[in-house]
Amino acid sequence: MPVIRVELSAGRSQEQKQKVVTDVTRSLVAHCGCTPESVHVVFVDVQASDWAVGGAFLGPPKS
């Protein structure tokens, strides 16, 4: 049972996420020999205020 965790900045639409799910599932089926039903994709939407790069947050702190 492959579990794919996708962490990204919040704001992607359900349609965008569905396209990712479709592509990731197809890739695992093609390259790993698993069934589509066994592929789990979990999205973690992270607010810019909770994500930092190079010592600086991407967005202002939550109020």
Rank of each mutant, 00 (worst) to 15 (best):
Q14C: 01
L8Y: 01
M1Q: 06
V53M: 05
C32Y: 06
K19Q: 15
C34I: 15
A48K: 10
V21K: 00
K62A: 11
V20W: 07
A56R: 09
V21A: 07
G54M: 10
H31R: 04
Q16H: 00
H31W: 02
S63I: 08
L58D: 05
V53N: 01
F57R: 08
Q47N: 07
P36C: 04
E7D: 09
T35P: 00
V46R: 00
Q18M: 14
V29Y: 04
Q16G: 01
I4F: 11
V44F: 04
L58G: 12
D45E: 14
Q18N: 14
V3D: 04
V42I: 15
V20G: 03
C32T: 05
D50A: 00
L58A: 11
R26F: 03
V6P: 00
S63C: 08
A48T: 12
C34L: 12
S13H: 13
F43N: 03
I4C: 13
S9L: 10
V46T: 05
L8N: 00
T22P: 06
V44H: 10
Q16F: 00
W51E: 02
V42C: 06
C32A: 13
G55N: 11
S63G: 14
V44E: 12
H40V: 14
K17T: 08
R26Q: 10
T22K: 13
V3L: 13
T25P: 08
F57H: 12
S63W: 06
F43R: 03
S38W: 13
G54I: 08
S49G: 08
G54P: 13
L58N: 09
V24T: 14
G55W: 08
E37G: 07
F57C: 03
K62I: 06
S38C: 11
E7P: 02
G11R: 07
R12N: 05
K17D: 10
E7W: 01
S27P: 08
M1S: 07
V6T: 02
A10S: 09
V3G: 04
V29G: 09
Q47V: 04
I4T: 15
L28M: 13
S27Q: 08
R5M: 12
L58H: 07
E37P: 01
A56D: 12
C32K: 05
Q47T: 03
P61V: 06
G54D: 14
A30D: 15
W51C: 03
A48D: 10
R5V: 15
D23G: 13
T22Q: 14
Q18T: 15
D45C: 03
V39L: 09
K62G: 01
V21G: 03
V6D: 02
